[in-house]
Amino acid sequence: MSSGKELTDLDRSIYEWQLDVPGFGDEGQAKLRNTTALVSRCGGLGGPICLSLAAAGFGKIIIAHAGDLRLDDLNRQILMRHEDVGSARSESAKRTLSSFNPHVEVEVVPENITEDNAEALVAKADIVFSAAPLFEERLLMNQECVRQNKLLVDSAMYNLEGRIIPVIPGDSACLACLYPEIPPRWKRRFPVIGAVSALAANIGAMEGIKLLTGLGTANANRMIYFDSGTMRFQTIQLKRNSECKVCGKRS
């Protein structure tokens, strides 16, 4: 993280109400201002993550997401705009973010995460928020974050449930410790109400803010699980897998 940019008077005006949060203050704000976040896909989960990162005043958000906006994206992809159906999701997301907070730099990459782009994209970021609907992309992000020692927050949902896994490489269980193979029974099409993905997203965004600023207690080595059907929330103690192909050999 470059510690270059100081807070400006404009920053102080925009973020005044969060500068009042005990344990956050100018120091926390300056950390976010100097942080670049990579968000893998900006759909039902990645979209609200981006919005919360922009609201919090991250310096730069890089969004990787392929494809054109479809009508059936709009029950959950709250960064998108109805009039953009048929055009690139990443551009629609950028327009929304830039009109919401023009002081956050937004870079869009109209591609999903692949073996070809993962390394270079992670290299540009200080923290990665992973929110793709496929384990292939999530495990690639995890592998690259561990390799490059970058913070990772992997947030996922299904039906009325969500789970968030913050990862500090070398220190806490990584995604591959838990999911050592691509789960064969996971299906790309999943039941979703937008409020549930936004809930998972905002828990993930908050975990990222805590990892970066030291605010509160970060949940590395714990999974946060919720069932919005009952509103039962739980934190689950995770274990590193000493045989993990991704992080097992690190100290």
Binding site: A132, L134, A156, R163, R185
Partner: peptide, 10 residues
């Protein structure tokens, strides 16, 4: 005992 199948909805 919690049995958690893998989820990746995003």
């Amino acid at each position: 005992v919690m049995l958690m199948t893998p989820i990746a909805g995003g």
